[in-house]
Simulated scan of single mutants.
Amino acid sequence: MRLNTLKPAAGARKAGVRVGRGIGSGLGKTAGRGHKGSYARTGKGKIKAGFEGGQMPLQRRLPKVGFRSRKSHEVSEVLLYKLGVLDVEVIDFEALRAAGLVEKRAERAKIVKKGELTRAIKLRGVATTAGARAAIEAAGGSVE
């Protein structure tokens, strides 16, 4: 056996169909593409993904989902355990902003219970969740 004598097995390689070669070939004139339509055109066989032949496509029939509130930036959340770091007697919105715990564009703050509070604090004019309020009062602090 030599490399120059190697051949594929009989019937393994099939010759391609020659289209558009006259009536006698059986695939003349329209070359098996039928009459008119996008698939009969040159280079136009592909259609856009999601195109449904003019019917309203699925992605436009389904409702829009989701919502991003523009008010979400007005309220900034502050974690409870970060309040223990502040060296201020009364913690209010200005104290939180000065400490950098509140975003610059926030108009209000809300204390959220996460972690433990180690010392008693006095909170004034800041919203809290029910769990955060209970934790502050349990540590000997107060919420006004």
Rank of each mutant, 00 (worst) to 15 (best):
R2E: 10
L3E: 13
N4C: 12
N4L: 14
N4D: 14
K7Y: 08
K7I: 06
P8G: 02
P8R: 05
A9G: 11
A9E: 13
A9P: 14
A9H: 10
G11R: 04
A12R: 04
R13H: 12
R13P: 03
K14H: 10
A15W: 07
G16C: 10
V19I: 10
G20R: 05
G20W: 06
G20M: 04
R21E: 11
G22L: 09
G22A: 02
G24P: 03
G26S: 05
L27Q: 01
K29I: 05
K29D: 07
A31M: 04
R33C: 05
R33F: 07
G34V: 12
H35R: 04
G37C: 01
G37T: 00
G37V: 00
S38K: 12
Y39W: 06
A40E: 02
A40S: 09
R41S: 00
T42N: 01
T42G: 03
T42I: 03
G43H: 01
G43L: 00
G45T: 00
I47T: 14
F51Q: 12
F51H: 07
F51V: 05
E52F: 00
E52K: 02
G53P: 01
Q55L: 13
Q59R: 09
Q59K: 08
R60W: 02
R61C: 03
K64W: 00
V65D: 07
V65Q: 13
V65H: 06
V65Y: 08
F67Q: 05
R68V: 09
K71D: 06
S72Q: 07
S72R: 11
S72K: 08
H73S: 15
H73Y: 11
E74G: 10
S76G: 11
S76H: 15
E77M: 07
V78Q: 00
V78C: 01
L79A: 15
L80S: 01
L80G: 01
Y81P: 02
Y81E: 15
V85T: 11
L86M: 12
L86T: 03
V88Y: 06
I91L: 12
I91G: 04
I91V: 15
D92F: 06
E94Q: 13
E94V: 13
E94Y: 08
E94M: 14
A95D: 05
A98R: 15
A98F: 06
A98Q: 14
A99E: 15
L101C: 01
V102E: 04
V102R: 05
V102Q: 06
K104Y: 02
R105C: 06
E107Y: 07
K110S: 07
I111L: 11
K113C: 11
K114M: 11
G115M: 08
G115Y: 09
E116Y: 10
L117I: 15
T118F: 11
T118K: 14
R119N: 09
R119K: 14
I121Y: 02
I121C: 04
I121F: 05
L123A: 09
R124S: 13
G125M: 15
A127P: 01
T128G: 11
T128V: 15
A130F: 03
A135Q: 12
I136Q: 01
I136E: 01
A138M: 07
A138P: 09
G140H: 08
S142F: 10
S142W: 11
V143G: 09
V143S: 13
E144Y: 10
